[in-house]
């Protein structure tokens, strides 16, 4: 554990708490892409299949359980109580390509051809692009609520800080893995436009609006 990873995990935790707060406070999931939320649920379920086979620490297990449970809760609530508050007509990104693309990538680029390892690798590639339906929806509507922008910033910062963590771990431990590094870089690049608008507008107290 190092400071980049710890802050990254806390940002991830914060992002979900902000999203839950947004949905509760506004009593609405408007502006949230259901497809991205569904992809995150798939990401965490496939990544944490080792939950019962590979004990790391109480911290690790608690975080895994929280990420699976909270993403499942959000997907469930968007389908149930908050179904009428978001518009599926705005959420039109074709996620079949992301699901299929991540499958192809994990079959080509992986370290071990085992059940757990392939699913773990799949989750890494899928996470890199899971935000695309959300970004696509925002590019169509051209704006986002401030609290939604904070949610997305915390979520993007999580993987961005993991990239810094991997560079730090290489420098201090000689630990290096290409797959999560490249996937983390892809995700951070996809976020670039969002980060730019977030820093130039939302951090200065303005509404998140695309130029």
């Amino acid at each position: 554990m190092n400071v980049f990873r710890l802050v990254a995990d806390l940002m991830h935790l914060a992002s979900i708490l902000i999203l839950l707060l947004k949905i509760r406070k506004t009593r609405s999931a408007a502006g949230i892409s259901f497809k991205s939320q569904l992809l995150y649920l798939i990401v965490f379920v496939t990544r944490y299949l080792d939950l019962f086979t590979h004990w790391v620490s109480l911290y690790n297990t608690a975080m895994k359980v929280f990420f699976i449970a909270s993403s499942g809760y959000i997907v469930y609530q968007m389908q149930r109580r908050y179904r009428a508050t978001w518009d599926p007509a705005l959420d039109t990104f074709r996620i079949e390509f992301l699901l299929g693309g991540a499958a192809v990538m994990s079959l080509i680029f992986h370290t071990k051809f085992t059940f757990l390892e392939l699913f773990w690798t799949y989750s890494i590639w899928l996470e890199a692009v899971a935000i695309l339906p959300q970004l696509f929806q925002m590019s169509r509507t051209g704006e986002a609520e401030t609290i939604t922008a904070h949610y997305l910033f915390a979520l993007g910062a999580y993987r961005g800080l993991y990239v810094v963590n991997w560079i730090y771990r290489y420098a201090t431990e000689g630990y290096w893995e290409w797959i999560p590094f490249l996937a983390g870089m892809v995700q951070t690049v996809l976020y670039a436009d969002f980060f730019y608008v977030y820093f130039s507008r939302v951090m200065r107290g303005k509404k998140f609006e695309l130029p």
Binding site: D50, H54, M63, K64, K112, Y162, G174, Y175, E177, P180
Partner: peptide, 10 residues
């Protein structure tokens, strides 16, 4: 490096 090390991360 062992691939398992990555699984300690979230």
């Amino acid at each position: 490096s062992s691939p398992d090390a990555a699984h300690d991360e979230l």
